[in-house]
Design a protein around this nucleic acid. Sequence first.
DNA 1: ACGCATTTGTTCGTATGTATT
DNA 2: TAATACATACGAACAAATGCG
Lengths: 269, 269
Amino acid sequence: MADAAPPLTPVVRAVAPAAVGPAFSPLYQQIKVLLVQGLQAGEWQPGQVIPSEVELAARWRVSQGTVRKAIDELATENRLVRRQGKGTFVATHAEQETRYRFLRLTADDGSAPPLQRRLLECRRMRASAEVAQRLELKAGEAAVQVRRLLLASVGAGAAGAPARLRPVVLDDLWLPGTPFKGLTAERLAAWRGPLYRMFEVEFAVHMIRAEEKLRAVAAPAEEAALLKVAPGAPLLSVERLSYTYGDRPVELRRGLYDTQAHHYRNVLN
Amino acid sequence: MADAAPPLTPVVRAVAPAAVGPAFSPLYQQIKVLLVQGLQAGEWQPGQVIPSEVELAARWRVSQGTVRKAIDELATENRLVRRQGKGTFVATHAEQETRYRFLRLTADDGSAPPLQRRLLECRRMRASAEVAQRLELKAGEAAVQVRRLLLASVGAGAAGAPARLRPVVLDDLWLPGTPFKGLTAERLAAWRGPLYRMFEVEFAVHMIRAEEKLRAVAAPAEEAALLKVAPGAPLLSVERLSYTYGDRPVELRRGLYDTQAHHYRNVLN
DNA sequence: ACGCATTTGTTCGTATGTATT
DNA sequence: TAATACATACGAACAAATGCG
């Protein structure tokens, strides 16, 4: 298991002082960059342990504390997960803590909603102007569109009454065709577990960050029918752009939420 | 300026090992508690500097690094602000960085919206059952209700054309009567700057955290008229509960956002 | 069941760099 | 220039959690 030789570029200690303008960055930031490069290069896969702090410190000829501070930042960004006594792991969308970490939907009674999925559509298409612009593709490039429904079981608790399913979220996803070559409805339907976990496992695409824009909209006829609400009913529109390494957008998602019995939860600090 | 004697309870080093179950907490956490107590007690007011790291370390008989780690956490929680060369300051809702730090509304063109305020109502009332429950008051206790409108200037840029104002947010606030004794429409109208800054200055209430629940709703007639949208138009409902020290809720707010030209922006990590 | 090695977590101390006044 | 304060970096030691023999 010992990787003796320094596999990555050794750290060049930034010259300290004087007229070094924006070119300077602290040592722990340089270490952070090296760690990110290792993650991006796939040297350590999601779910795996990265080398211990002392080992990394030795490899890059810095103190353990410096490595530690770099890891700290990546841990608060949810890209690494520290586990005392075990090691530091590459974050995944699979574990309990980080499953659906981008999903802020909550049932009004506060319960975490175990939602059912129903795949409606998955087809390859050419990126429209808007999709291309958001995903930083050329207009007309290959893309994949997915439509699905998330359903919550209601009326649970009462014995005998079979839990009925009510649609809560209608999701439309647009993905760039190249990294997601081979994504089909069959594979989607067969997958158990979080979608982003599938992207990690099957397509080596790791979502590390996302930005959302929320609006209230009137339900269009087609979407209303799918969500089983009246046309024109108010829906929460959640437009999400998800990013991988290098700030590259790799998913555009538009969710329509029925917020009659659920809400979008946010914490402000 | 020298406070020689240890004004706060000295740190009792937690006994280390063995069968100490949940009673144990690391030193820097204990220091953090002491810092929070100082903030809560008003020993350091918002905007003021707290003592330097070395001074606090000496006062509480711990190393500077331990104090530093405690301050680090409070800084990431936005309760303290570090400024190299100057000191560490108690966070305020006044400064540029932290102004409107709870407001996620963004214009669709990305510009930060300098919103105009229009006070519609400010009256003392008795807390309804729901308000009392949320604010942890007894039903019927004194409370203050405030209603206001936030307006954005549209059609700016073109010279000669006077910037028109369009209502964007209708806010309803409920505040506990006791800490907000003396809050009147006049004082509200006279205040320039963020509302939460007024609460700090005039009522010594510091908002340090908030939770929001978002929904899409149909505009009721009265609210629609105020926002100048059609009755039944979809509006984004933002229900916010704001907390001070000790996790005490001190403001319930219900905002109705017109999201035709604006959106609620959120970043996920 | 016990102890040992490994790994992260906490704490200390010291030195130096950088920004501010 | 000097003093002060936070920021970075190093090294060392011990605690706590885990896994293995």
